[in-house]
Design a binder for these strands. Structure first.
Lengths: 190, 190, 190, 190
DNA sequence: GATGAATGAGCCTTCATTCAT
DNA sequence: CATGAATGAAGGCTCATTCAT
């Protein structure tokens, strides 16, 4: 007997992400996904109940990756700027390495697939990042602004930088990253 | 496909934008658009050749609005920071007032509807903004970074701020805007 | 504007009945139905929400026809044997004229389409027939057996006769009908 | 397709009959059959070439059972009424004990699975029953009607009685059977 | 022009059948 | 043999588009 090849799930995910980046959520079909992943349409239905489930589960996986990557090597007890730098760099790395996922998540947020609830629980995964910002505020190292606005202020430039680089096929240099980090820091510092 | 009754065209546009915000590009149909706009499916085809044309033309219109709004009251000969502030405020106003269009443009960028060419010509509309940044660099008022990165650095936080406010149904206070502007400025100042 | 052609519903019904007689419920597809009725597949979906609804609604219509035809010209106050003969003849006429419907109903009874409830309410339509039998029992004209068994005893031969005639392409003569009626009557008479 | 393990074949048959009774021919799939029979889908294909063969062979088996059961203990040389009673009782017993098969045969008659030929050869198995009726006619004990109509007249009430009992979960009493037999006899007697 | 019924290509999904294990 | 994952043709259904009114 041929056992259920759990690797196929990942191949389906990869195909989906690639296609969504290229064509948007509105431009993909189950047969496109199957073809890109290298098997028959019906096979996808062995691993996913239907298209919606595939999208939802991939969304959740992407969001988990996202939260996880953000906090790689993150030490909440480190000095604020060090910890902040760690997460900022993780953002850049994650967004670059998993650009497909970034785009996929963005497209999903305006789709009929993702429920309000999924959206909310997803955001809760970023709690440590929120906590860190609050710590920075408490230590008077950064502006006394409501935390979400500070988080947003950071995410915005990073996300746009990666998008620009991807769309225009530009490399992001070490120098640019340093510059960008400095700009972000100058923006929020007290 | 006779865009005579400019009024009807706008109703179709409005319905489309609303629906895309709610359901994403993947969640809209021509009949949904027609129903929301208040007439029969066939009527849409009097004003637009097909779905793609509707999307493309709306995209172009949105981008024109975008560029236009950015430069409302903009005086290139004004002192840099004044001009910069004008445009920054225009970004905020435009994104807030026409949030639907922001989302629509974003969704279109990853859709089969918008050609590479359309994307590029669209961006050219923002030339004055680019020129302004370069002027700021020449005057040594802001960082000597390649212009696109500076533009991006500004757009990012603004866009994210508006999205956050919309999704979380939060009002953006005058004070927040001032704070955000200051942060953006601190980020890019020389 | 082309108004919804309610006649199409009947054409769809007719096509379905014909196809079910020929191939059974398991042998029909929506496109077969559409083709036989003479229009495109999608058209069927203008008149029926889905396949199940089509089947269910046709079932209900057939059962209404059935009940109605049974009681054509039926006078409950007529002498028992006269009234009994009226209904018996109606059974024969209905089953012959609407053989398709007879088969369709039979197939539906063992299908996933018809709910237990529909089955039950359908049967209630035959109340007058039940009442008549009871009247006959009260008047001691027929056997003192529980009513359902008497009803069944009558329906059985009629149904089988019609089926046999249809399947073997045999005409049912006036004489045969008289003979059959007499046999049925002799069976139940007191 | 090696009907070696006759036991497994019977389990497949039993599962199929049960499912067809519950869902009709249109409501069964090969995997449903396999699951109900307690093994994997592929296993069914070891014993049957394909779905059609499974249905056809089961049909033939059911029809053989049917004919066989009808003539259990039947002595053609016995007095007519005795022999007639034997077969009539066999009908009742068979239909009750193998109600699944009755329904299955009925559904098959209107399916794409059973060929015209299979239908005909099946009927020939009932020859002794036909002969008996003719004997009764020759002996002037029953009505001088064409034999098929007499056969039908008998089968009809029996079949309907069993169906009614099954669908309404009613027990058939010894008394009812006697009554029914008497009615059938009174119907056909000369 | 406006309407919405009609069309049929194409998408999602199922399921009979095959095949690697 | 037995298994159930894999296959892909075919069915149910949708929806962009057309067309009769």
């Amino acid at each position: 007997m041929k056992p259920r090849d759990e690797n196929k799930v990942n191949e389906i995910y990869a195909a989906t992400l690639q296609l969504v980046k290229e064509n948007g959520l509105s431009g993909i079909t189950m047969s496109m996904i199957a073809r890109k992943a290298g098997f028959a349409t019906g096979t996808v239905y062995i691993y996913f109940e239907n298209k919606e489930q595939l999208i939802v589960q991939l969304f959740e996986k992407c969001f988990r990756n996202y939260a996880q990557d953000y906090f790689a090597g993150f030490d909440p007890s480190a000095p604020f700027k060090v910890a902040f730098h760690t997460i900022w760099m993780n953002m850049v790395k994650h967004s670059t390495a998993k650009f497909n996922e970034l785009i996929f998540i963005e497209q999903c947020f305006h789709s009929p697939f993702i429920s309000e609830e999924t959206r909310k629980t997803s955001k809760e995964m970023l709690k440590p990042w929120l906590d860190l910002i609050e710590k920075g505020k408490n230590e008077k190292l950064i502006k006394q602004l409501e935390t979400p606005w500070l988080m947003i202020y950071i995410r915005g430039p990073v996300r746009e930088m990666i998008k620009y680089a991807e769309y225009n096929k530009v490399k992001i240099s070490k120098e640019l990253i340093d510059n960008m980090f400095e700009m972000c820091w100058n923006g929020i510092r007290a």
